[in-house]
């Protein structure tokens, strides 16, 4: 029983940063903007989170710094693509490259220093309940934030008027503009929300997952988050499912290896990606549904006519 609980806990830790970053990017893409800079914003969040936590001794301040850094860094992307209408794909890619380089430079002094770790939740009695106690009441705080965030985004996008407006901008920015909606302002906020989420995901890496700073520590997780958004056909609950499927296969293959299952390890290592592709193919078989969910003006620059 213990091992099952431990495996589930490990899966949750592996899935949480993917989920948070993907949920943020989902909101960005629902507003019609494609930001490929998730990896860069994530790593900037990781270095800021570690740095602030290390310098102040408080991982909570680190967490806030990670969120703030993600949001501020995404502003760069917003100014370029929204105000100056640059190509979103190119700008997003350069944001990633810039983030990876800049974070390495900022983090030089933090290399080889043990950091602060966010403590796991502990509620007397509740956390001590066998099996479910640790799963429900004993995880790291960001895990709870990630679940709440998913629910909140789901509610916001599909149950509120502002959410509806945001989605309409993503589908047709010209129509939305004609209706008098402030397209650019909405998109600025969406991009910054996405940045804050990516920053938080980065903070999870350097404050919970592996409390340390090393260059490139995001190791491609931003790209996986981006893929998850498409995989989930822009639906929040599917992002949640996707992140956990990915996490489960990822952890599962490590356990399979430790257990000594005679399958080539290279194949096992590629399983999470294969599984994602297979599910993606299955989901996108229904063309109409996919079309309906895809933000129609995704990635197109918008210059309001005056």
């Amino acid at each position: 029983m213990d091992i099952t609980v431990n495996i589930l806990l490990t899966i949750a830790t592996a899935a949480t940063p993917l989920l948070i970053a993907a949920i943020g990017e989902l909101v960005v893409e629902r507003s019609g903007v494609l930001n490929l800079g998730v990896e860069g914003m994530m790593i900037m969040g990781a270095v800021a989170g570690f740095g602030a936590g290390y310098l102040t001794g408080s991982p909570w301040i680190g967490l806030l710094a990670a969120i703030a850094m993600g949001a501020v860094f995404s502003l760069l992307f917003a100014v370029m693509t929204l105000s100056l209408a640059t190509n979103q794909v190119a700008t997003g890619l350069s944001l990633t490259l810039l983030g990876l380089g800049l974070s390495g430079m900022m983090g030089t002094g933090f290399v080889g220093q043990p950091g602060e770790k966010l403590p796991n939740l502990y509620i007397p009695v509740l956390t001590e309940i066998p099996v479910v106690g640790k799963l429900l009441f004993g995880q790291d705080p960001i895990f709870y934030i990630s679940i709440a965030l998913t629910a909140a985004v789901m509610w916001f996008l599909f149950k509120t008027r502002t959410g509806l407006t945001l989605r309409s901008i993503g589908d047709s920015h010209t129509s939305a503009h004609a209706l008098g909606i402030k397209v650019i302002r909405y998109r600025y906020l969406a991009v910054m929300f996405g940045g804050a989420c990516a920053g938080l995901a980065g903070g999870h890496l350097s404050l919970v997952y592996t409390p340390q700073w090393v260059e490139n520590m995001s190791a491609g997780r931003g790209w996986i988050a981006l893929a998850l958004v498409v995989f989930a056909s822009w639906r929040p609950w599917r992002v949640l499912a996707g992140a956990y499927i990915f996490g489960a296969v990822w952890i599962g293959q490590l356990h399979a290896q430790a257990f000594g299952i005679p399958v080539p390890s290279q194949l096992l290592s590629s399983l999470p990606y294969l599984a994602t592709i297979v599910v993606l193919v299955l989901i996108s078989r229904n063309k109409r549904l996919t079309m309906m969910n895809t933000p129609a003006s995704l990635g197109q620059p918008f210059v309001p006519d005056r």
Partner: peptide, 17 residues
């Protein structure tokens, strides 16, 4: 017990392993 992570450097994966 041996686990191949197929990477020289991925802190998250190393921790998971």
């Amino acid at each position: 017990k041996i686990v191949w992570v197929n990477s020289w450097f991925d802190p998250g994966k190393e921790a998971d392993a």
